[in-house]
Amino acid sequence: MTSLSTEEAPRRFLESDRAHVLLVRVIRIAFPHDTLPVSAYERTADSLLNLAVQTNRMTLAVANGLDSLGSLPQGDFLGLPDDEAFAHLKSIERTEFFTFVRGNTVLTLYNLPEVWAALGYEGASVEKGGYLTRGFDDLNWLPDPRVEEYSGELTRVEQGPLPYPVKASRRTEADEVTL
């Protein structure tokens, strides 16, 4: 059984459909969202492959990383159930290949306007007059709070404990902190 990359130079492998399909699956398993269109993952894979071929180092790392997904002991990565595919990525998360995919997916996938739309983010607003009349204060499941500074009888404490009750998280014990 010969894999593509032994027959083709790594750079040509990265330009193949097989590399693209493998990378899309890696990204979908690593960054699973029910709401995102498949096209967002495909565009991300395209940009990562374009980025990888810019340098020999990343060409080698990514081509090798993707190619080896074809001949896992469990079979082809494309055929694995999602949980096994995830477990495999976990086992290679420190590799240069996976670090490249993770880091650049974070920068690319979440910078796509179609992903923003799917997540409910509205993006640039200045051209539309901001959110002044488009819901910057439309939250209605809580009462409208005070916007002015406190003007009651208490004075602000600058040193020492508060003279009014405040719910407090666990105090850090003295032996955990050197003062």
Partner: peptide, 12 residues
């Protein structure tokens, strides 16, 4: 601003 005070009882 309530926590912007020096109160070593909080552990710092």
């Amino acid at each position: 601003a309530d926590e912007a005070r020096h109160d070593p009882d909080r552990g710092f």
